[in-house]
C-alpha cells in the first residue's frame, strides 16, 4: 500500500476549479518537489495534505484511509514565514512538541520531564546548527536561522510526512545551499517523506527524487476559472540527472510548457 494516494482529486472554490484530475501514488521515503506558476494551486494542494483544506471531489488517502481534515502530528510543516512562535526562545520552540506530548493539561513541562525534553531539543537544535543561540528569540535570528529553527521544531515530532511551502524562498543563495545540505541530510537520516514547493527549478532538481510540474492542461479564454491545474509532468529524478542539471533533463523528457518558460 502506498503512503499517499490520490484518485481523481479535485478542488473547487465555488465556480473556480483550482485543481483537477490529480492521480498519484507516493511511497514512503520519496522527496517530491512541486513546481508551477504562481497561483496554480500548489499551496492549495499542500493545504489539502495538511488537512486545512478539504478536497471537493475524488479521494486523497493516507495509508489507504481518507486524510484527516485537520492538521495532525504525523504531518509536519514549515512555512515560508510565521513558522516559529515569536514568544518562545529557540529552545522553547523546539521543546514545544515534547511539552505537548507530556503535559496534556497545560502544555508546559516541569522538573525532570522538562529536563528530558530540553535535552532532546538540544540534540535537534545541534543538528541544524543553532546550538549557540539556544536562548535567543526568533526576532533576534536571521531568516536562514529562523527556517533552521522551524525545521528542527517540526522534526521534534518525528513526522512521517514533512511539508515545506517555499521554505527557502526568502533566503540568500549562499544560505540556500547550506539549507539544501541540511534538508537532504535530515531526509536521509530520518527516512522522511517530503513534499516541497519551490519556485527554483534548480532547487527542485537538486533536492527531489521526483518532480511534479503543476499546470493547466485546458484553458478557456472566456472562462479562465473553468479548468484547474493538474500534475502535467511527474518526473523521477535520479542521481545522474541531478548532476547534469536542469536543461539536459528537460531536453531529454521533451518538456515544453508555459511553466517551463516561466520558470527557466
Amino acid at each position: 500500500m502506498s503512503l499517499l494516494e490520490a484518485k481523481r482529486l479535485e478542488k473547487h472554490y465555488g465556480d473556480q476549479v483550482v485543481l483537477e484530475r490529480l492521480n498519484f501514488r507516493v511511497e514512503p521515503g520519496e522527496f517530491v518537489t512541486l513546481v508551477g506558476a504562481s497561483g496554480c494551486g500548489k499551496t492549495t494542494f499542500l493545504k489539502m495534505l495538511l488537512g486545512t483544506e478539504r478536497s471537493s471531489k475524488g479521494e486523497l488517502l493516507l495509508d489507504g484511509k481518507p486524510i484527516p481534515n485537520e492538521p495532525g502530528p504525523d504531518r509536519g510543516v514549515v512555512f515560508q514565514k510565521y513558522s516559529v512562535f515569536p514568544h518562545l526562545t529557540v529552545l522553547g520552540n523546539v521543546m514545544f512538541a515534547e511539552e505537548m506530548r507530556h503535559s496534556r493539561l497545560f502544555g508546559k513541562a516541569f522538573g525532570g520531564t522538562r529536563r528530558a525534553a530540553a535535552d532532546k531539543a538540544r540534540e535537534r537544535i545541534a543538528e541544524v546548527g543553532l546550538d549557540h543561540a539556544l536562548d535567543k528569540y526568533p526576532h533576534e535570528l536571521s531568516g536562514g536561522m529562523q527556517q533552521r529553527l522551524a525545521i528542527a521544531q517540526a522534526l521534534m515530532m518525528k513526522p512521517r510526512i514533512l511539508l515545506l511551502d517555499e521554505p527557502f524562498g526568502a533566503l540568500d543563495p549562499g544560505i540556500r545551499v547550506d539549507m539544501h545540505e541540511l534538508v537532504t541530510r535530515l531526509w536521509q537520516e530520518q527516512q522522511l517523506t517530503i513534499f516541497m514547493i519551490t519556485h527554483d527549478l534548480k532547487e527542485a532538481f537538486a533536492l527531489g527524487t521526483r518532480l511534479w510540474v503543476f499546470d493547466k492542461l485546458r484553458h478557456d479564454p472566456q472562462a479562465p476559472q473553468a479548468y484547474g491545474a493538474t500534475i502535467t509532468y511527474d518526473l523521477p529524478i535520479d542521481a545522474r540527472q541531478r548532476q547534469e542539471g536542469v536543461p539536459a533533463t528537460f531536453a531529454e523528457s521533451g518538456i515544453k510548457t508555459l511553466t517551463q518558460e516561466t520558470l527557466l
Partner: peptide
C-alpha cells in the same frame, strides 16, 4: 493561521494551544 496550524502539527490539542 500558520502558528495555529504549526501547533497542531506538533501535537497540541485545543486547550494546550489556547494555553501555550
Amino acid at each position: 493561521d500558520e502558528q495555529l496550524i504549526k501547533a497542531q502539527t506538533l501535537g497540541g490539542n485545543s486547550w494546550q494551544i489556547l494555553c501555550r
